[in-house]
């Protein structure tokens, strides 16, 4: 195995093109507005709900997901406790996960969710529905600003942009492929 390592690196050294400079980190400005974020998230099949300053999260969740029974969350009283050791069987039965999003991206509706906010790495995808709570002041214009703000992507982290989807059958868009069937961003 190590011999392949050496031979590959030797071949790269022998064959690499003349040195060129690494361009400086890009930044193109752009509009970091709630309106733009909302527009794009709707475009990709998600939903934005603005919470009143004093509105309890539980009330909003209850209104939006009246049928959700098995709820996993560290932001409101949960009905299913989830942590890193939770078994697949328990995870699989979760109706709704309510998690904290760190950062929204106005140009595409994506929300940064680091591992620390997930309770279990599989939860944001295995849950039937996903709600992400986001501070409206934490919306940036583009992916350049998003990576600048995130700095290090950590042990595991995901930009989630809308619900899981596919168009693999005749290019017909179907929402709810393998991951969450719906995505709501609750803006504070």
């Amino acid at each position: 195995m190590s011999s392949s390592r050496e031979s590959i690196l030797a071949a790269v050294r022998a064959n690499r093109p003349p040195a060129t400079a690494l361009p400086p980190v890009a930044d193109f400005g752009g509009e970091a507005s709630v309106e733009r974020f909302t527009e794009w998230l709707h475009f990709i099949g998600g939903q934005v709900v603005r919470l009143a300053p004093d509105q309890p999260l539980e009330d909003a969740v209850q209104q939006l997901f009246p049928k959700a029974v098995r709820i996993a969350s560290n932001l409101l009283p949960a009905t299913v406790p989830v942590n890193g050791q939770t078994t697949t069987e328990v995870l699989e039965a979760v109706d709704l996960a309510v998690l904290q999003g760190e950062l929204g991206v106005a140009e595409n509706g994506a929300v940064w969710v680091p591992e620390a906010n997930m309770l279990h790495r599989a939860l944001p995808m295995i849950t039937q529905h996903l709600a992400l709570v986001l501070d409206h002041r934490h919306i940036v214009a583009t992916m350049h600003h998003a990576y600048a703000a995130v700095q290090h992507t950590g042990a595991y982290g995901v930009f989630i942009a809308g619900p899981s989807k596919t168009a693999d059958i005749e290019q017909s868009l179907v929402i709810g492929a393998h991951g969450a069937r719906s995505l709501v961003v609750l803006l504070r």
Binding site: G154, V158, S164, A167
Partner: peptide, 28 residues
């Protein structure tokens, strides 16, 4: 990591016309 800003803006738009893929996942 900052170079991902460039590539994630190009990839999905070029591929399917989406502004970004639904999941952009970073495994370390």
């Amino acid at each position: 990591t900052a170079d991902l800003g460039v590539f994630t803006r190009l990839l999905a738009r070029s591929a399917t016309g989406q502004p970004v893929t639904t999941y952009t996942s970073h495994f370390a």
